[in-house]
């Protein structure tokens, strides 16, 4: 078991090193910093709403750009190994294929954690500029956004274990979009008169990870309105959402490993 962890860690570190060479990721960090600076500008225009705008922009930016980045790295870092044929030299070493997939995902977790950390630092700097301390609500929202990003990365890894980058990107983007609107799907089931719409919505709820549980600010949880700027969820909710994400990540990785195990590299 220790030897297995050692090999997984070797792949993870190499993946992190590989990702650190992708210039697009630095461009994304610049965009997120720019979004936070925009939040300052927009905050100045609103009356006594500076910190609200900064928090809303910051959390939304992390969720949006973090998820898009997760799809990008999830596809590029796994499919790239096959496309560039670097996988031949690696898989022929005494390494199980599942160790390779898990190692790649773990490397992506390191990259995405560093990115979410950079986004969070940018948001904290904006809030500090406005003289606002990071509240518990913001910390919880950041943890939720981080888990959303990690879940989206697992979705991308799953698709890129068997399909091309274009299809993987399309499927992952579709699942991310559907996963964000699960309350609307539930509303459709409750209100729609069409049987097939009910069935499609029910099916989507089963096969698509519920990503809405990670981006709840401005919505309702158990009938209560929650906002990062006011009353927010407790840490128990965050732990439950994290467990939900972890289960989806585990399930997606198990499926990806099973598919990857059968794959021919020709």
């Amino acid at each position: 078991m220790t030897a297995s962890l050692f090999r997984i860690w070797a792949i993870a570190l190499n993946t992190f090193r590989e990702a650190a060479r992708i210039k697009v990721l630095y461009a994304i960090v610049v965009v997120v910093v720019a979004v936070n600076l925009l939040a300052i500008a927009l905050g100045e225009m609103s009356v006594s709403q500076h910190s609200r705008v900064a928090r809303d922009f910051g959390i939304a930016g992390i969720s949006l750009f973090g998820s898009l980045t997760a799809i990008f790295v999830g596809i590029v870092l796994l499919y790239g190994e096959i496309q560039k044929r670097t996988i031949y030299s690696i898989i022929s070493k005494p390494l199980a294929r599942w160790e390779f997939v898990v190692g790649k995902y773990l490397g992506m977790v390191l990259v995405l954690t560093a990115l979410v950390g950079a986004f969070a630092i940018a948001m904290t700097a904006v809030l500090a500029y406005q003289g606002v301390a990071v509240s518990g609500a913001v910390a919880k929202a950041l943890v939720l956004a981080w888990f959303e990003v990690l879940t989206v990365a697992a979705i991308a890894v799953f698709f890129s274990s068997f399909s091309s980058p274009f299809l993987s990107g399309t499927f992952a983007l579709a699942l991310w979009a559907i996963g964000r609107v699960t309350p609307d799907l539930r509303a459709a089931i409750a209100s729609s008169e069409s049987t097939w719409i009910k069935w499609v919505a029910k099916g989507a709820l089963v096969i698509v990870p519920d990503l809405h549980v990670f981006s709840i600010s401005g919505g309702d949880v158990d009938g209560q309105h929650v906002s990062v700027n006011g009353g927010f969820v407790d840490w128990g909710y965050v732990a439950a959402a994290a467990a939900h994400g972890a289960l989806w990540i585990a399930a997606l990785l198990v499926l990806a490993c099973a598919i990857f195990r059968k794959r021919d590299f020709v």
Binding site: N14, E18, K84, R85, Y88, S89, P94, A96
Partner: peptide, 19 residues
């Protein structure tokens, strides 16, 4: 894995992590 443990392999036109 046992088979690969005691052998080495050079693929045709090898590609490596160029960084």
């Amino acid at each position: 894995r046992a088979a690969r443990q005691r052998m080495g392999f050079l693929p045709e036109q090898p590609y490596f992590y160029d960084y």
